[in-house]
Simulated scan of single mutants.
Amino acid sequence: MNEEPNPVNEQDIVSRVKAYIYAHYSEPLSLALLAEKLGISSGYLSQIFHKTVQESYIKFLTRVRMEQAAKLLKAVPLEKVYDVSDKVGYVSVKHFSHVFKQHYNMPPGEFQEKYMSAQRGN
């Protein structure tokens, strides 16, 4: 991320934050860290992010991580859930499984099995 932002252009700030999240979703990320990288306050970043994206920073980050997890579970059906959890930025596989189940209405293992059986059926 560029260290010298133009704080006047909210769209530019949000675009850079989104790009950073997509590039670094597997790392520990916080609103404070992103705001610091841009040289703005986390309160301001939170406000403009929500206004521009129509969802909170944490919901956006969670959605990105869940979409990446689903891609991994589909692409590598034998991948261990704890490995997928780690690859998408979760320290706790229990927390990852809970969030995944909320997002997809099924636990990651069941999601994985569903895609393995669908691939076998083709």
Rank of each mutant, 00 (worst) to 15 (best):
V76K: 06
R63T: 15
N122F: 08
G39S: 07
A69G: 11
F100N: 06
E36C: 07
K114V: 11
G39T: 03
E110F: 06
R65E: 00
E3M: 12
G121E: 10
L33F: 08
K37C: 05
I40H: 07
L73S: 05
L29E: 05
M106R: 08
P28F: 01
G43E: 10
S56R: 03
Y115R: 00
R120F: 07
N105M: 11
E27G: 04
Q54R: 09
K37N: 13
Q112M: 08
G89T: 00
Y57V: 04
P28R: 04
F49I: 02
L61D: 02
S85A: 15
Q54E: 15
V76Q: 10
Q47A: 12
K94W: 03
Y115F: 15
F60N: 02
P5S: 14
S42D: 13
Q54A: 13
Y25D: 06
Q102T: 10
P77M: 01
E55Y: 03
E110L: 14
L73P: 09
Y104H: 11
K114M: 13
Q47T: 12
V81H: 07
T62F: 01
S85I: 01
K71N: 13
K101A: 15
I48A: 08
V91K: 11
H103V: 02
I48Q: 05
Q11C: 10
S30Y: 04
Y22E: 10
P7E: 04
L45Q: 01
A32Q: 09
V91G: 09
P5T: 08
G39Y: 06
A70T: 02
M66V: 07
L33D: 12
S41L: 04
P107F: 01
Q102R: 11
M1D: 09
F49M: 02
L73M: 11
V8E: 14
I13L: 15
S97I: 02
E113M: 12
R63C: 11
F100I: 06
V76T: 12
I58C: 07
F111Y: 15
A70Q: 02
G109K: 01
S97P: 07
N122E: 10
D83H: 05
P5R: 02
A70H: 02
L38Y: 04
Q11I: 14
